[in-house]
Write a protein that binds this DNA or RNA. Sequence first.
DNA 1: CATCGTTATATCTTTTAAAATATAACGATA
DNA 2: TATCGTTATATTTTAAAAGATATAACGATG
Lengths: 123, 123
Amino acid sequence: MDTSIKNILKNNHDVKVNGSLWLESANGHFFGPGPVELLERIADTGSINMAAKAMNMSYKKAWALVNALNAQTSSPVVIPQAGGKKGGGSTLTGEALELIRYHRLLRQRFADFLESETRQLKE
Amino acid sequence: MDTSIKNILKNNHDVKVNGSLWLESANGHFFGPGPVELLERIADTGSINMAAKAMNMSYKKAWALVNALNAQTSSPVVIPQAGGKKGGGSTLTGEALELIRYHRLLRQRFADFLESETRQLKE
DNA sequence: CATCGTTATATCTTTTAAAATATAACGATA
DNA sequence: TATCGTTATATTTTAAAAGATATAACGATG
C-alpha cells in the first residue's frame, strides 16, 4: 500500500482519463468532433438543414460551424447553393472528405493515448 | 501539391492541434488544470480563500473544487480548519502532493502528444 | 469571552451561451 | 413566373453558468 494514484483515488475502477481535441488557429477552434459529424451528415443528406436536424443541432449553429470551417481552408470544403433544384443544398468537396479521413485517424490516436493513460492509472 | 491536410488548411503554420484533459468518474470531472493550480496555491498560502484570490477565482468556486476533489479520494487531500489560529486555514496531505506530481507528468505526456500531432499536421 | 480571518452555505444578480423564432434571398424547374 | 426547400441573417427568448453579496459557524489565542 504505497502512495500511488491508484490508492489515492476512490472507486479507482470507475476513474478514467478523458479529454477533448480540436484544431485551432488565431481565429479560434474550428474542428472538433461536432463539426466532423456535421460534415458526414451533410455528405449523407446533401443539406446543412437536414444534417443539423438529424443530429439535433440548430441550423444556426450548423451554419456557423460550416462557415468557420470554410474560413479555415484554402478553398471552401462545403459548397452551398441557395435556391435551385429542391430549393438548393450543399455538397462536400474532396478536401472535405480528406479532412474527415484525417480526423478519424487523429481521434483514434487520441483514444489510444487516453486508454493508455487510463490503464497506467490503475496499475 | 497533393490532398494532404497541410494543403487543405489555410495559414497552415498557425494551425495547431490542441485539447484538454481531465480525470472523470461517474460523478463527473474532478481533476482539470484549474483544480491543480488551486491545490498548489493552497499549499503556498495555507488558505483556500487566499489561494482563490491569488488566481482570481471566487471562493465559492474554489471551495466547490476542493469539495469535489475530496469526494473523489479515499480520504480528504485538503484538510480544512474553520476557526483557530488566524481564523483557520487549509493544509494539503501527502496524497495531495502526490496528485500534483502525477498531474504534472500526465500534462507533460499530453503536451508531447499534442506537439507530435501538430508537427505531423505540417509535414 | 471577545477577536480574528477562515470555512461553509444560501441567496440574489449579472453575464454569457444557447435556443427559438421570424424573414429575406436564392435559382432550377414546371 | 409561381413554387419549392434551401441558404443566409437578424432578432428575441430562454437557460445555464458565473459572479457578487451576505451571513453563520468555527476554534485557537490573548
